[in-house]
């Protein structure tokens, strides 16, 4: 049913939604929901709050779709909204410390269980492979440990695949700065995951 819509660019889909085509929005949602949700989730570290914020992002798109003039990419607009909402949330929560998604849960919930474990893994194979699962947990924890400015760049580039120049537009700094932040983020990750280096080579 949506085959034709699937081939359209994001901006064309939004235009169709502006004309009253709800299916076009569903296709857009399918393209962005997972990476954007993970961007928000890793920023706020609270699945419930992340769900609220991701709804807020898309609801703003729904209500203000006519504000999008097509002068930049839709992904840039979406991530700008998401980033600003996360910043607002961070300011409100400045005195509240959230547990890491990978921090151990209460003792009655099992010693090894973490909040991150409650986040479903992307594939069943990951569940079966204990090393892969351990690595995933470590990576997630390492990403959360990144400084905010590096983490957001890393997530936009790594998870959504945004180009460095688009990230620069969203964040409002030069492309070179973005690349530096990305490089620092990768170096930190690699340092944090040194013990998995051999495993990473096997992945490659």
């Amino acid at each position: 049913m949506s085959t034709e819509l699937d081939t359209l660019a994001d901006e064309a889909l939004l235009e169709r939604f502006q004309r009253g085509d709800a299916e076009a929005f569903e296709v857009l949602l399918g393209r962005y929901e997972r990476p954007l949700y993970n961007f928000v989730l890793r920023s706020v570290r609270d699945p419930e709050k992340a769900a609220d914020l991701i709804q807020e992002v898309f609801l703003r798109v729904i209500q203000r779709s006519d504000q999008f003039q097509g002068q930049s990419k839709l992904s840039t607009w979406l991530y700008s909204i998401a980033r600003n909402l996360c910043i607002d949330h961070g300011r409100r929560m400045v005195f509240r410390r959230h547990r890491s998604l990978d921090a151990p849960l209460a003792s009655d919930e099992g010693k090894s269980a973490t909040l991150g474990d409650r986040v479903p893994a992307p594939t069943p194979e990951a569940d079966r492979d204990s090393i892969a699962r351990e690595l995933q947990g470590q990576i997630a924890a390492a990403v959360e440990e990144l400084p905010e400015d590096q983490r957001e760049v890393f997530l936009m580039r790594q998870v959504q695949g945004l180009a460095f120049k688009d990230i620069a537009e969203i964040v409002g700094v030069s492309e070179n700065t973005i690349k530096s932040r990305m490089r620092y983020a990768l170096e930190r990750l690699q340092a944090a995951l040194e013990e998995y280096r051999d495993y990473a080579k096997e992945l490659g």
């Binding site: 709800a22 929005f25 569903e26 949602l29 929901e33 997972r34 990476p35 949700y37 993970n38 989730l41 699945p47 769900a51 991701i54 709804q55 898309f58 609801l59 729904i62 991150g116 986040v119 479903p120 893994a121 992307p122 990951a126 892969a132 690595l135 995933q136 947990g137 990576i139 997630a140 990403v143 890393f154 790594q158 998870v159 990768l186 170096e187 990750l189 690699q190 995951l193 998995y196 280096r197 990473a200 080579k201 992945l203 490659g204």
Partner: peptide, 23 residues
């Protein structure tokens, strides 16, 4: 090498209730 490690970052799905509400 760092990119290969980063590729293993797990992605959680958006809650289905949020999706239904948005649609």
């Amino acid at each position: 090498g760092a990119k290969r490690l980063a590729d293993a970052l797990p992605l959680a799905p958006m809650p289905s209730t949020a999706r239904a509400a948005l649609i």
